[in-house]
Nucleic acid binder design. Structure first.
Length: 178
DNA sequence: TTCCCGATTGTA
DNA sequence: ACAATCGGGAAC
């Protein structure tokens, strides 16, 4: 089961409250999605703004595909592709609230501080041990699983996106309190 | 082929 | 507040 991923802005909101779980040989690791950002093709801040490249090809694939990219020479970030095939758009997962496999996260993140396990896009990828080889694959074909919210989520806050220099006026960062 | 910089994080 | 660190993309 997947949330509505018909476009990136709605998808970014709809993904909040869903639980992302990675089923690994060492155990299940996961958490509830509490922060996302939307990127569209007609958006200067998006990797797809100037058309497809070898790296960004997965973003043009169908909704439910995964897109991972390497940033600042050391971090991997995970996106869930949205929209029709041929449209380059996706949702960046920025933070989770840990629910499963906290001991494994502490090991992979090399910290016991719960607040710092999955508090950024690079951190959550490291905590869940999500391999870059997932990029380009369909989420349902990987060991990742999305579980619908158990109870209704609270109010969604909409703010400016983090760490970008272009299209900074777009309020496409979405967060919830749990 | 070269150069520049980024959808960040950890440490001081 | 700031250094660490390197692949991709655009330009030459």
């Amino acid at each position: 089961m997947l949330p509505d991923l018909s476009n990136s802005v709605d998808g970014a909101k709809n993904l909040l409250g869903w639980e992302l779980v990675h089923h690994t040989p060492a155990g299940d690791i996961g958490g509830i999605i509490i922060e996302t950002e939307a990127y569209r093709q007609d958006d200067e801040a998006s990797h797809t703004f100037r058309g497809p490249t070898k790296r960004t090809m997965p973003m043009f694939d169908e909704a439910g595909t995964l897109y991972m990219y390497f940033i600042y020479g050391m971090h991997w970030c995970l996106n869930i592709v949205t929209g029709q095939e041929g449209h380059g758009e996706a949702v960046l997962l920025r933070a989770l609230k840990p629910t499963h496999g906290i001991e494994l996260m502490q090991q992979y993140r090399k910290t016991t501080d719960i607040k710092r396990l999955t508090n950024g896009p690079g951190s959550l990828v490291q905590a869940l041990a999500i391999p870059p080889t997932y990029s380009g694959q369909k989420l349902i074909h990987t060991k990742l699983e999305l579980i619908p919210p158990a109870k209704p989520i609270g109010e969604i806050e909409s703010t400016k996106r983090i760490g970008i220099k272009k299209a900074t006026d777009k309020p496409w960062r979405f967060t919830i309190e749990l």
